[in-house]
């Protein structure tokens, strides 16, 4: 098992992060195509594409003891959020000229995430997956943590900040360029 990876890609980071949190040792190989098409997991007889499918496979590994599953709705929602964010981020970061007010691109998505997290908080839960962190939370984290690349002001999203603080305290949390260990 090996991950075709691009270190700066948000979708690849979601997979590396998930593997680390689940305690799965996942060898990586840098692959240019992952920048465009996202991560791919090489298996003995197959190749899995996309963060969601790869994370769902990791969860089923016998060494993964903790429950990391999220509900189907939550996983689909988080996967869509990650995909849309990833497109926006690549649009901004790979643009030949600076994009004016990039935060405006991401703010509708950030508002949607904030609403969902704030509702969960009223129920006493800080995870999208419920009482425990799951695949949906793992896919959501790169979106909110890398929103700074689009200059999103986090003072406007307190439930997102609360989610990030709890997420960074999880055992096995790893960083990537643009995601510091603190804050």
């Amino acid at each position: 098992m090996r991950l075709r990876d691009w270190a700066l890609d948000d979708r690849c980071y979601a997979v590396r992060l998930g593997a680390s949190l689940m305690g799965v040792k996942l060898p990586t190989v840098t692959d240019d195509s992952a920048l465009e098409s996202g991560p791919a997991l090489e298996l003995v007889d197959d190749v899995l594409h996309g963060s969601l499918d790869i994370l769902k496979r990791l969860v089923t590994l016998p060494d993964v003891l903790q429950e990391w599953n999220s509900g189907t709705d939550a996983m689909t929602w988080a996967a869509n959020a990650l995909d849309s964010f990833s497109i926006m981020r690549r649009t901004v970061m790979l643009a030949s000229l600076p994009v004016e007010n990039p935060a405006q691109l991401a703010m509708p998505l950030m508002g949607e995430i904030e609403d969902r997290l704030a509702e969960n908080r009223l129920d006493g839960r800080c995870w999208v997956s419920g009482d425990h962190p799951g695949v949906a939370d793992i896919m959501l984290f790169p979106v909110v943590a890398l929103s700074q690349d689009l200059e999103v002001p986090l003072d406007l999203y307190p439930a997102v900040r609360n989610f990030m603080r709890h997420f960074k305290a999880l055992p096995g949390f790893i960083t990537m360029p643009g995601v510091p260990e603190c804050h």
Partner: peptide, 8 residues
């Protein structure tokens, strides 16, 4: 506190 929310 219940929540804070952005109104644009």
């Amino acid at each position: 506190g219940v929540r804070s929310l952005l109104v644009q």
